[in-house]
Amino acid sequence: MIHLRRGGILAEVLRVESETGLAEALEQEWDLILSDYNLPGYSGLAALDKVRSLGKLVPFILVSGEIGEDIAVQAMRNGANDYLLKSNLARLAPAALLAIEANRTRIAKQYADLALTRSRQQIRELAQHLQTTIEQERAAIAREIHDDVGGALTAVKFDLAWIARHATTPDIAEHAQQAMEAVTMAHEATQRIMHNLRPAILEQGLVAALQWMSDRFAKRTGIATEFRTSHEQMVLSAGVPLVAYRFAQESLTNVSKHALATRVSVDLAQAGGVLSLEVSDNGRGLSPDDLAKAKSFGIRGLHERAETVGGWVDISSGANGTTLILSVPLSGPENGFLDAIAPELSIDTVGTEGDPDDPTAWGTQ
């Protein structure tokens, strides 16, 4: 106590001399434990093991009059913060203050890490909610296009066919035929829009959907597109197929708009509990400036969508083209939480005086 007071530390001190007394004392929160190495029927190293076995992060300083170097090294490996010789107790107060400050810094970091973990979880939940809302809105819009626009176009087409059959002059028949062709094109456009809004092809499975998308992309753009898969059928958890489908859709859209590619490959594989979807092209590649653009929402959207199902996106790009890889673990651990630690100053002396809904769920029918 004298050396602590000389160092400017006014502390609440509790002296214990047995393992039972130590266990009872550890039911409270302490800022520092000072332990003699030699105790009656006990030892400082045993006390240290007891403290750490209980999960207590309180700083621990070992004090002895005859501690050897190997014992000191062992104590530090077991979690002691410092060791002092009784012949040099002038270091006690500075060592105690340093250990307490280091522990409080560690506690502050744990609180910050916990807050960051919770913040990230909230962001994931928000992204999850937004993706759910977006897919539900897309499904609703697709239904309205099908029921209202599609129905109206079909009715107009019947009326135009009647007019063409009953036309009294060739000019009227020709105009009716041209109008029917325009209505047919509009009807095909609504089908394409509905599919983009809500890919019903996914009901046949992810493999079939990606095969269809690759074939359609090749026909529409003229870019040679090859689709490969490790499995003809895949059993995936809810949400994963839609994330993979949207990833491939966005990737191929970027290829057609920016890559200037002549060849694209789409590879789907499931191995080691991870689903991998790779889209590669032989285009001009992405520069670091392209990836660093503040408004690079396409790439950013891929990352955010992958995170909603616990996945991630890897991008590699160079003079020979660009490769985007979506990886989704089909199972994963849950996040834990840190225990809170009380910050009030106190010292325990042993033998001395001194931290809803799936985001990619299909919209309701």
Rank of each mutant, 00 (worst) to 15 (best):
P170W: 07
L153C: 02
A209S: 13
R305T: 08
H258P: 02
L39D: 13
L92V: 08
A127W: 02
P170D: 06
L39Q: 06
R143H: 13
E278C: 09
N254T: 11
S331C: 10
L206W: 01
T154D: 12
R305C: 00
D348C: 14
D70L: 07
K109W: 05
G285Q: 03
H258F: 14
P199Q: 02
H175V: 13
T221C: 03
P170A: 07
R284F: 02
P94E: 07
R120H: 12
Y37R: 04
E226C: 10
L260Y: 05
E304K: 04
D339I: 13
E135N: 14
A25L: 07
M1S: 14
L202R: 00
E226L: 11
T352I: 02
Y83H: 08
Y111A: 04
L4I: 12
M180R: 09
T184S: 12
Q121W: 03
D215C: 02
G318S: 13
G239L: 03
S316P: 00
R106V: 13
N78E: 15
I2K: 05
A189P: 01
T133K: 06
A292Y: 07
I33T: 09
I163N: 01
G205I: 10
D281W: 07
M76C: 06
L275A: 04
M185V: 15
H303R: 11
E125F: 03
G310N: 09
Y111T: 11
D36C: 07
L202V: 07
S18Y: 05
M76K: 02
V16H: 01
V350G: 04
L26V: 06
A95T: 07
T154W: 04
E353Q: 14
E66R: 12
A167D: 12
N103W: 03
M180G: 08
M185H: 08
G332N: 07
S53M: 08
G354M: 03
E353M: 13
A209Y: 02
R220P: 05
L89G: 05
Q178A: 14
K157P: 00
V309R: 01
A23L: 13
Q249K: 12
Q191Y: 00
R118Q: 15
F337P: 00
E203N: 14
A142N: 04
N320Q: 14
G205V: 06
E69C: 01
V243P: 04
A93R: 08
L48A: 02
A25I: 10
E188A: 12
T262L: 03
G44A: 10
F60A: 05
E278M: 08
S316D: 15
M213L: 15
I341M: 07
T184D: 12
A93D: 03
T323Q: 09
T322L: 04
K157V: 04
L85N: 11
E304N: 05
G150V: 03
Q178F: 00
A224T: 15
S317L: 11
D281Q: 00
V73P: 03
T323V: 15
Y83V: 13
G273D: 11
N320H: 08
V266N: 01
D339S: 15
G44E: 00
A173Y: 00
A47D: 02
E174L: 14
E24V: 12
D147V: 14
L39I: 11
K219A: 15
